[in-house]
Nucleic acid binder design. Sequence first.
DNA 1: GTCCCGAATGCTAACGTTCACATGCTCGTG
DNA 2: CACGAGCATGTGAACGTTAGCATTCGGGAC
Lengths: 340, 340
Amino acid sequence: MAPTARRPSMADVADRAGVSYQTVSRVLNEPEIVRPATRSRVLEAITELGYTRNRAARALKTTRSSLIGMLNDGSALFGPTETTTAIETAARRAGYSVLLTTVGAEDSAGHAVGAELLGSGADGILVVAAHEGMVPAVTAVARSTPVVVVSAVPPRTPGIQVVGVDQGLGAHLVVEHLARTGARSVVHTAGPQDWFDARARREGFEQAIALHGLDGEVVGPGDWTPRTGYDLTNALVRDGLPDAIFAANDMMAMGVLHALHEHRLRIPEDVAVVGFDNTLGAEYQVPSLTTVAQPFAELGRLALERLLCLLEERELPPGTPSTLPPRLVVRRSTRPERTH
Amino acid sequence: MAPTARRPSMADVADRAGVSYQTVSRVLNEPEIVRPATRSRVLEAITELGYTRNRAARALKTTRSSLIGMLNDGSALFGPTETTTAIETAARRAGYSVLLTTVGAEDSAGHAVGAELLGSGADGILVVAAHEGMVPAVTAVARSTPVVVVSAVPPRTPGIQVVGVDQGLGAHLVVEHLARTGARSVVHTAGPQDWFDARARREGFEQAIALHGLDGEVVGPGDWTPRTGYDLTNALVRDGLPDAIFAANDMMAMGVLHALHEHRLRIPEDVAVVGFDNTLGAEYQVPSLTTVAQPFAELGRLALERLLCLLEERELPPGTPSTLPPRLVVRRSTRPERTH
DNA sequence: GTCCCGAATGCTAACGTTCACATGCTCGTG
DNA sequence: CACGAGCATGTGAACGTTAGCATTCGGGAC
C-alpha cells in the first residue's frame, strides 16, 4: 500500500528505455516487428518498474474488456463449482479474466442481474447453473453479447449456444443398470423442475422406464438437498417401497440412504439406491453410492472454448462436441450385475 | 448480437435529452444536484437507449475499477464456496464486481497469479481459501493493493488485514464435548498443514487436550478429502482405536465413518466421530454427524466490509469483530451429554 | 555520390468518462 | 430596476492505451 504512488504507465517505461510509448505498446502487442535490441531494452525497463498494462485504458481503446461474465447459482453445488474452476483456469490461460455473478434466491427476478451483466462490459457470458431464474437475465443480455449456456436443454432464445452433459443418457444408464440387476419397480426422487438438468433427468428416466417395461414413478420434486431426499423416502417407506430409488443427485441420495438406515432397511438388498454427479463423497457413503459421473471440468473447458470462438470469430474446430456423455459408476448401493 | 452497433455513450443520451454530456454524468453520479425536470428527461433517454456506463472509461478516469479480486483455491470446497457467494452478493450490492482467480495445484508457484492479479486492476483483493500456496501471490500484490485475507492466522506480511473464524475455539468446543461425554483418548485426523485453518485446528486440539488432561494424538495430515479420512482410520483400526476421532473437516469425517462401518464398529458406542464445517450433508451421514458450524456467509460479508473500508478510507464501525465464533452442533455420532 | 526502398520508430488523435472551472439563469434584495 | 448570490448547466482537458499515418534511418544499386 504505497502512499498513492501512481502506477507506472507506458510513458514511464518509454522514458526509462529511451523510446517512445508507441514502441512500448508494440513490444507488448507485436514483439516481432521491433528490433531485438530495442525490445530487450524495453522489456528490461518493464520489469524494473514493475509495469503492467492498464486494463481500463486498453479496454476503452480496443472496446474489448478481456472479461468473461459468469452467471452462477447462489447455492454452493458441487457440479457448478467444479465447472467454474475449470472455466476460470482455461480463461486465464487464454488471457481473459472471469467476472463472477451469482443469482441468488432473493433476486429471483434476475432483471437486475441482467442489467448488471450488461453494464459489466464483459465480452461474453457463460451461464453455469442453468435454471429458469436465469432466463430473464440471459435473454436481456444475449441481444448484445455472445452467450454460452451450460445446460442439457436447447434454449428458447435463438442465438444462444449450449454445451451440456447428456442427462437423458445418464438416466438411461441408471435405469438399464437397475433393470439388469433385477429391479422391477423404480422411484425417481426428482430434482427441482425449474432446473433444466433436473427436468432432463426426469424425462430420461420416464423414457427409459417405458423402454425397459419397468414400473416407474416420479416423486418430488426435491430441491437438490439431502433433506428432500430424506423426506421423500420417509413417505415412500410409509406408502410402499420400490426395488430401487434413483435420486436426482448425490445430495438427495444421501438423504435417501439416511432415511433407509433409520428404518433398518438393507441397501441394496431391500432397496437399491442410485445418485447423480459422483461428488467427492459418493464413494464414502454407507454403502458407497452407485452414481453417474459427469465430466464437469471438461464441460467448463468446452463451454469456454465455444465462447472464445464466438468472441474471436474463429471457427469451432470440426468434431468439437456440444454434448458430453456421462458415465455410470457402479458401487455398492446397487446389486452387482451378473457377468456370464 | 447486434451487428456491431456501437453501444450508446453519454453523448448519445445527452443529445436525446437535449442536455450536455456532463449533465448526464451528473444525473448518474450526484442526482440530487440536477433539477428534477432535467433529471427525469435524462433518465428517460437512458432507458430508451438502454444506456449503461462504460466501465472502462470510468475506471480509466477515476483510477478505480470497481473490481474486487478474489483469490480462491481450485478445489471445490464447501466453506470457501459459501464464503465466495456471500462476498459476491455483498459486493454487487456495494457497487463492485468480483473478479475470480483460482490458484490451482498446477501453478503452485503463485507468482504468475500474483502478476495476473496486479494486472487485473482490481481495487482490492480478498483471499478466501488461505494456504501457503497463496503467500507469494499475496505478498506481491499487497504492496500496491489493499488485501484482506480470510484466515484463522495473522499474516506475516504487515499491512494485510485478516478476518476469520476462531478455529482454535472450534477445536476446544469439540474436545470439551468429547471429554464431557466420556472420551478419554482422542485422535485428530489433521488437515493439510499448509492450510492455515487446518493448522489452527490442530493447535487448538493439542491445547484443549492438554487442558482437559486427555490422551490425544494427531495423525495425518490428510488433504480434506474423504479418502484420507478413510485411510487414516483404517490405520487406526489396525493399531488401536481411541474413544473418539476428531476429523479436520466433514469430508474427512465421511471417510472416517465409512471405514468404521466397514469394520462393523458402532458409532458412537465404539468410537465417537466429530467433523468440522457443518456441510449440507453432515446431518444426513450415518449416523448424523456432530460437527462445528462455521458462519461462512457472515465471514464473507465481514471480509468484504473490511476491504471496502480500506478502499473507501472509511473507519470500520466500532465493535466490528475480526474473529467470528464457530458453533458446536451435536448430533448422533457422539454420545449425548448428560444433563442433570 | 545520389537515389530509393523498406524497416524501425515517432507523432497525433481518439476511445467515454470525470474533474475543475467557466458561464448563464433565477431570484431576492436594496 | 440593477445587482449579487447561488444554483444549474456547459466547456475544456485529461486518464493510458492503440490505430493510422508520418518520419527517420540505414543500406544497396546505379
